[in-house]
Design a protein around this nucleic acid. Structure first.
Lengths: 345, 345
DNA sequence: TTGTAAGCGTTATCAA
DNA sequence: TTGATAACGCTTACAA
C-alpha cells in the first residue's frame, strides 16, 4: 500500500503539498491538486489513519462498553449511537463486558491504549466502581448510559428507574392487583435492578401493600420457573409480576404459558425497556419504555460536549408506560390460578 | 499522558531498554526491569498502541461488518467471535451496514484506512458484490459469514442454506402439510433468502406440490399481516409457513395469534436461524438452527489462517432442524381456519 | 545486558 | 502556492 511520499513523487510535488491536497485542497493550485489526485488514484493510495491519529493526537474514535450485545435494549441504543457518532465524524469501538467489573476495567485500559477520544459506558454497578473514579482522576471524558448514579456530578444519561418502576407498580394496583412481585436477574450485578426494586418497594408501601423480596434469577434475561413457582400458589399468591427487563419478562411469560397459566388472565406481567420485540409477540408485552434511541443520541452529544471541555449535567430522559396485552385487570377466581396443563410440560 | 522516553529517563535507562522491558522482559536484567516498571507505574504510563501499530505495520484489529445488530443471529455470532479473537490477541471493530451495498463499500474503505489486519463480512449479496473482487485484487484477507457464494474459491463460513430449507419443507410435508408457503424480507437484498427460497422450491417439486411465489415483506424482520392475509383464505389456503429468519417468524406468529389464528393448529410456522429467543416464547419456535457460535469461532479461525498466508477452503457447517411448538401436524377442518377474533383487533 | 539510531506515515511550522 | 524539516511514540537492527 502506497504512502503520501510515493504519491508526492509521482505527482512531482513535495510531501507537504500532497498532504495539503487532501486536508486543505483550497490552499493548492487547481492543476497541482489534479496531479496529486491522479497520482493517488493510480497508486490506489489510502491515507493511513494510524499515522494521522498518532500525529494529531486524536483518533475520532469513541470507545463503547456494553454489558451484553444479545440484549436488544443495548443494540437499539447502539444503533442510534453509531448514526449520531458517524454524523460527527466519529467511529465506535464496541466491546462487551458481560456485567463483569474486572472486564470493564481491562477493556477500558485497552481502549485508552488505543487512545479513544472518549468513552460511553454502561457498567454493572456505577455506585461501587473504582473504574469511574480512576477515569475522573485521569480526566478521561466519559458518559454513563442507563446507569443512574446517586452523585449529581457524574455524567450520565438514563431514565428515572425508581420512578419508572413506581409507576408500573401503581398501574398494576389500578388494575386491581394486590399481590405484586418483582423478578430480576443477579441484583448484585445491576444497579438498575436495585433502583427498580426500590421503586417497586416504595409504590407498594404507598399503596398499603406488602412488598415482597425480589425473586432473583441466576441469569439477567432468562427465568427459571422453579424459582417462580412457589410464589404462584396458595391464597396469597401473586397475580402480577414486574420484571427488571423485557427479555426476562418474555422468558417469564413463555414459561408461564408452557406451564398452563394464562397471561394476563391468571397472571399479569410487565417488563422494562420497551424493546421492539415486545410489540411483536402475543400477548404483546406491557413495558416501561426507555427511549433507547434518544438515550443513544444524547449519550453521544453529551460525550462530545465533555470532550469540548463543557460540563454537561446529568441527563434524565422521560420513560413511558406502554400498555400491552400481557397486563390486564385482576380476574376473580375461587380456584387455584393454575389451569390444567396442556401441550408439553 | 507520559511516553516511553519519560519512563526511560525516570528509570535511568535508554528508550530501547524501557521498550524491551515491556515487549521482551526476559532480555532485561531483573533489577533494571523492576526500575522501569516502577517508573512506568509512577508516571501511570500507558503504551500507545497507535505508535506500536504504525511501527509494526499490524494492528491486531479485525474489522467486522454486520447487516443489523438488532438481529440476534448476528449478535450471537459476534459474541463468539469476540471471545475467539480476544483469545488470539485480536480486537474487533464492528460496524453495521443495514443491508446496503454502498455502505458496505464505504465502511470497508474506512476500515482499511485504519489498517485492520483482516475483515469478517456478512454482505447483502455476495454474488453481485464488486467489493469482494476489489478485496481479492488488493489481496486483503477476508472471510464471508452466513453468505454462501456459488464460487468455491471465495472464503466463506455458512450452512447449506438450500439444503436446510429443503429439509424444513420436507418436515412440514411429513407432518401432512400440502399447502406450504414461504415468507421473506426484501429478497433482492439477501442472497441467503434467495437460496432458502430455492431450497423450498426444490423440496416442493420433489414432493409433487405446487410451489408458491415468495411472500415478500418490506422489512427483513417484521411481517405485515395484510400481505399475508390473502394466502390464508379459500380452499387452497396455506396451512404452513416457512420464514427466512426467526425474527420474521416470531413476528408472523404474533400477528397470526392477534388475528385469532392458532399456531400451530390453524397454521404451522417454521423459522430460520435458531436464535435463543425462539426457545423462550410460547409456542416455542420450530426453526432451522444455524450454529451461530461455531460459525463465529470458525470465521475467526479461517481469517487468521488466511492472514498467515494459508488458503483455507469454504467451510460448510451443519445446520439442525429444531422441532418446536410452532409447527405441528396438519389439522383437518371443514370450516375456515380462522376462529373468532379474541382480545384486541 | 544495554544503547544508538533509523524509520513507520502523517501533520504542522516556518521559510521561501 | 510550495518545500524542508521536525515531531508524534514506538520497535528493532546493529553495535557496544
Amino acid at each position: 500500500m502506497s504512502d503520501l511520499a510515493t504519491v508526492a513523487k509521482r505527482a512531482g510535488v513535495s510531501r507537504a503539498t500532497a498532504a495539503r491536497a487532501f486536508s486543505q485542497p483550497e490552499l493548492v493550485r487547481a492543476s497541482t491538486l489534479a496531479r496529486v489526485m491522479a497520482a493517488a488514484a493510480e497508486l490506489s493510495f489510502r491515507p493511513n489513519r494510524l499515522a494521522q491519529q498518532l500525529r494529531t493526537q486524536a483518533t475520532r474514535i469513541i470507545g463503547v462498553l456494553i454489558p451484553d450485545l444479545r440484549n436488544p435494549v443495548f443494540t437499539e441504543q447502539l444503533q442510534a449511537m453509531e448514526i449520531a457518532a458517524r454524523a460527527q465524524g466519529y467511529a465506535l469501538m464496541v466491546t462487551t463486558t458481560g456485567y463483569d467489573a474486572s472486564r470493564e476495567a481491562e477493556i477500558v485500559e485497552e481502549m485508552l491504549c488505543q487512545r479513544v477520544d472518549g468513552l460511553v459506558l454502561t457498567v454493572a454497578d456505577a455506585e461501587h466502581s473504582e473504574l469511574l473514579v480512576k477515569l475522573e482522576q485521569e480526566s478521561v471524558p466519559y458518559v454513563l448510559v442507563y446507569n443512574q448514579p446517586d452523585s449529581e456530578s457524574v455524567c450520565a444519561v438514563s431514565v428515572d428507574n425508581r420512578q419508572a418502576m413506581h409507576q408500573a407498580t401503581q398501574y398494576l394496583y389500578s388494575l386491581g392487583h394486590r399481590h405484586i412481585g418483582m423478578v430480576a436477574g443477579p441484583v448484585a450485578q445491576s444497579d438498575r435492578a436495585r433502583l427498580r426494586y426500590e421503586g417497586y418497594c416504595r409504590a407498594m408501601e404507598m399503596c398499603g401493600l406488602v412488598r415482597q423480596p425480589v425473586i432473583e434469577m441466576p441469569h439477567h434475561t432468562r427465568a427459571r420457573f422453579e424459582l417462580l413457582a412457589p410464589w404462584l400458589e396458595g391464597p396469597e399468591r401473586l397475580t402480577a409480576l414486574l420484571c427488571s427487563n423485557d427479555l426476562l419478562a418474555l422468558s417469564v411469560i413463555g414459561d408461564l404459558q408452557r406451564q398452563g397459566y394464562r397471561v394476563p388472565d391468571d397472571l399479569s406481567v410487565i417488563g422494562f425497556d420497551g424493546i421492539e420485540l415486545g410489540e411483536l409477540t402475543y400477548p404483546s408485552l406491557c413495558s416501561v419504555v426507555q427511549p433507547r434511541a434518544a438515550i443513544g443520541r444524547e449519550a453521544v452529544e453529551v460525550l462530545l460536549a465533555r470532550m469540548r471541555g463543557e460540563q454537561p449535567k446529568i441527563q434524565r430522559l422521560p420513560h413511558q408506560l406502554r400498555e400491552g396485552e400481557s397486563a390486564g385487570p385482576l380476574q376473580r377466581s375461587d380456584t387455584d390460578a393454575r389451569r390444567t396443563v396442556p401441550v408439553s410440560t
